[in-house]
């Protein structure tokens, strides 16, 4: 499985249109995802109870010096931990993964904060693009002799803003509108760039 995921992530990476200008500045070090140690999860409320799920395949390129952050998520890789709910969430009324297999976030600018950044950019989900702010902490650490970047944070988006919940599911009585995204990424300096 890890091999498959790594391969999928690589395929996705090629799809991330991070401009090659990343190598320009003096200390510009782009980072790419160390997939096995990273997680991208979400939580929403269903009938008054918290429900959790995760995306297993995604790609990230982060270049703090160049002010760039690009994320691509394979929407088919989500898992709610329940096969029935997976079918419903993957279907037309929610993620519609057949029609919209990818979600992407591309930061337009990074705003420095005390412990990290706020990335202002475009989130495209289910074919709808909206401007969102993704706050995160950022630090680099030396783990086993190599530099690793740790990007963590969470943000809340409204599912209906992206058309997630069609028809009867437009109602927020039983499935809440707010969805909290949590990300804990380990990034490695990209080589050869």
């Amino acid at each position: 499985m890890p091999a498959f995921r790594a391969a999928s992530a690589l395929t996705l990476l090629t799809a991330v249109s991070v401009p090659a200008s990343a190598h320009a500045g003096g200390r510009a070090i782009p980072y790419t995802l160390l997939h096995a140690h990273s997680s991208l999860t979400y939580t929403f409320t269903q009938a008054g109870a918290a429900n959790h799920g995760r995306f297993n395949t995604f790609a990230v390129r982060f270049d703090p010096a160049a002010g760039r952050l690009a994320v691509v998520v394979d929407m088919r890789s989500f898992d709610t931990g329940d096969s029935q709910r997976n079918r419903i969430l993957g279907g037309k009324d929610f993620f519609d993964v057949a029609q919209y297999p990818q979600a992407r976030f591309t930061a337009r600018r990074l705003i420095r904060t005390a412990h990290g950044y706020r990335a202002v950019g475009a989130l495209t989900l289910r074919g709808i693009t909206r401007t969102v702010v993704i706050p995160f902490t950022w630090r680099t650490a030396d783990i086993d002799g190599r530099e690793v970047g740790l990007l963590t944070g969470r943000t809340t988006i409204r599912r209906l803003a992206f058309g997630i919940g069609q028809g009867q599911w437009h109602s927020t009585e039983w499935v809440g509108n707010a969805v909290t995204l949590r990300y804990a990424l380990e990034l490695l300096p990209a080589r050869g760039r």
């Binding site: 269903q46 009938a47 008054g48 109870a49 918290a50 429900n51 931990g81 329940d82």
Partner: peptide, 20 residues
Amino acid sequence: ARGFPVSWFNLMQLPNLVSK
């Protein structure tokens, strides 16, 4: 056991009695 926590009238989420 199904992994769907029980809520009491959307007011209070009850703890799971067993793991999944």
